[in-house]
Computed example of a mutant assay.
Amino acid sequence: MQSSSASVRGEIVIRRAVARDAKRLTRLVRGSRAYEGPYAAMVSDYRVGPDYIENHQVFVAVDAEDATDRVLGFYALLLAPAELDLLFVQDGTQGRGIGRLLVDHMKTQARAAGLDRVRVVSHPPAEGFYRAVGALPTGTARANPPAVAWDRPVLEFPIP
């Protein structure tokens, strides 16, 4: 399994997240427009901590030409059970292929770990994106108030 590898697509580099990224990843989650309105409560207290980063496969997309190492997006892959736990792209950078790049990287990591599929419980507005990048619908995760007050689509990425 790669632990410090990087992938490059134009000016975007994907690297393994490190503990010092925790606050930036937390801000990205809490500030996401995808979680405005009725979805806001789900992420208002959410925290991506250094311990989470150290214990899971967390990778960040950064702009290679930005000296501040600005995080454009990130994902977290859980290996047991195989699940894409988090995937976020900075609001102002969506539509540039960063999400697709992160998913492709996740599939490579999953394949290297010997996984043949990766489950994702999607935020409802993100279902179309996951389908567009190859995830297949498998069911529905029922609401679990108060943490999650709505049903969520469950999809699966086949890992060939």
Results as ranks from 00 to 15, higher is better:
residue 123 H to M: 07
residue 127 E to A: 15
residue 77 L to H: 06
residue 37 G to C: 07
residue 51 D to R: 09
residue 123 H to S: 02
residue 37 G to A: 14
residue 130 Y to T: 08
residue 85 D to T: 11
residue 158 P to D: 13
residue 73 G to I: 03
residue 33 R to A: 11
residue 139 G to P: 11
residue 22 A to C: 08
residue 48 V to Y: 02
residue 35 Y to H: 15
residue 97 G to T: 14
residue 2 Q to W: 05
residue 4 S to A: 09
residue 37 G to R: 07
residue 139 G to E: 14
residue 121 V to H: 07
residue 15 R to F: 01
residue 155 L to E: 06
residue 53 I to Y: 00
residue 58 V to C: 09
residue 13 V to P: 00
residue 6 A to S: 07
residue 72 L to G: 04
residue 25 L to R: 02
residue 114 G to Q: 10
residue 12 I to N: 01
residue 65 E to T: 13
residue 83 E to G: 09
residue 58 V to S: 05
residue 124 P to T: 13
residue 157 F to W: 12
residue 121 V to E: 12
residue 21 D to H: 06
residue 160 P to A: 07
residue 117 R to C: 08
residue 33 R to V: 07
residue 28 L to S: 10
residue 142 R to C: 02
residue 105 H to A: 11
residue 62 V to T: 12
residue 31 G to N: 14
residue 56 H to A: 09
residue 143 A to R: 11
residue 32 S to I: 09
residue 124 P to S: 09
residue 76 A to K: 05
residue 11 E to W: 00
residue 155 L to N: 03
residue 29 V to M: 03
residue 59 F to T: 05
residue 36 E to A: 14
residue 111 R to V: 00
residue 45 D to S: 14
residue 62 V to I: 14
residue 150 W to M: 13
residue 109 Q to V: 14
residue 74 F to W: 09
residue 35 Y to C: 11
residue 35 Y to P: 02
residue 115 L to W: 07
residue 133 V to D: 02
residue 67 A to W: 02
residue 119 R to C: 11
residue 121 V to C: 09
residue 139 G to F: 12
residue 144 N to D: 15
residue 18 V to R: 10
residue 15 R to A: 02
residue 94 Q to E: 11
residue 79 L to F: 00
residue 32 S to T: 10
residue 11 E to S: 13
residue 11 E to L: 03
residue 67 A to H: 01
residue 98 I to G: 04
residue 76 A to E: 15
residue 27 R to H: 06
residue 144 N to P: 03
residue 16 R to P: 00
residue 2 Q to S: 09
residue 147 A to D: 15
residue 49 G to I: 05
residue 154 V to L: 07
residue 78 L to T: 13
residue 109 Q to Y: 11
residue 33 R to P: 01
residue 82 A to R: 02
residue 110 A to G: 01
residue 66 D to W: 01
residue 135 A to R: 08
residue 136 L to T: 11
residue 27 R to C: 05
residue 126 A to K: 05
residue 112 A to F: 00
residue 15 R to Q: 00
residue 62 V to P: 02
residue 69 D to V: 03
residue 52 Y to P: 01
residue 160 P to M: 04
residue 93 T to L: 05
residue 19 A to N: 12
residue 104 D to P: 04
